[in-house]
Amino acid sequence: MEIIPYKTNPKHLAGIIDVINYGQNIEADLKIKMVEEYDLFDIENSYQARGGEFWIALDNDRVVGTIALYPLIGKTAVLKKLFSYPEYRGDPIRIGNKLYDKFMEFAKAHGYTKIILDSPEGRDRAHHFYEKKGFNQITAEQLEVEYHYPDRNSLLYESNI
């Protein structure tokens, strides 16, 4: 198992699409069309060229998890695209924690002081994960930066680093 920054690779891109589609549409039934995920088809410019990053978790070259850091104004970043297949969650693998640790290592090294995220309502396991990591739920009115997100009855969270 390894976690690496994304580099252009059609096989890995297909794996990214698969794991995100699984989490959003098969598990959560959000009915998100891939056309709405335009950032995934240009990860380099959507994340990396802006000073952010997009990581993939690989198990024998199969993408089994993702996470991304999208920079906003100043020292605020967005945690995006945290997805994994169920068999990689919890003990003994805990891929979500490993992806999150990679994200936080990068965020701290690049001077970010606040992380925000959105998560669809009803995703209790994800909400519990974020709350255990120190995120607090906020309202859209409490956002201190402009952040556009696909609102699917989403909950917003923020955390200071």
Rank of each mutant, 00 (worst) to 15 (best):
N136I: 13
H128L: 14
W55D: 10
Y100T: 01
H12M: 03
Y147L: 04
F54Y: 14
D18R: 02
V19G: 05
E27F: 03
D151H: 08
D42S: 14
E121G: 08
K102G: 01
F129A: 04
K75S: 15
I17C: 09
T76E: 01
H12Y: 09
M34C: 05
I73D: 15
V145W: 06
S84L: 05
D61A: 14
A28C: 11
M34T: 09
K133M: 11
Y157F: 15
A140L: 12
S154W: 07
Y70Q: 11
S46W: 08
L13D: 09
G122K: 06
K80P: 01
Q142Y: 09
R152C: 02
K133W: 09
G74Y: 06
T66V: 02
D39M: 09
I93Y: 13
D18A: 12
L79A: 05
I4R: 10
K114V: 03
A14R: 09
I116N: 07
I20P: 00
F41A: 07
G52T: 04
Y38A: 15
K133A: 08
I17M: 12
L155E: 05
G134P: 00
L30T: 04
H12S: 02
D91E: 13
E105K: 13
I56T: 05
E121I: 14
F135K: 02
I73V: 15
E141P: 07
I17G: 03
E2L: 13
I161E: 13
T66Y: 11
K31S: 11
E105I: 12
R50D: 10
K80A: 04
Y130T: 06
N25G: 07
K132C: 10
N97L: 08
H12W: 09
F54H: 03
E158N: 14
Y149W: 10
R62S: 11
I32K: 05
N9I: 01
D124K: 13
K132L: 08
I95S: 00
E27L: 15
I4Q: 09
K132G: 02
L117C: 05
E37S: 08
K108Q: 13
Y130G: 01
E141L: 12
E27V: 14
G96S: 12
M34H: 10
I3W: 01
G65N: 03
Y130W: 01
I26A: 07
M34I: 14
S159C: 14
N21D: 14
N97R: 08
E36G: 00
T113M: 04
H110P: 03
Y70E: 08
K7Y: 12
I138M: 03
F54M: 07
R89H: 08
L69H: 07
F54C: 11
N97V: 00
P150K: 14
N45P: 00
H12N: 06
Y149D: 02
K108C: 10
E53S: 08
S159H: 11
G65L: 07
L117M: 10
I95V: 14
G122H: 10
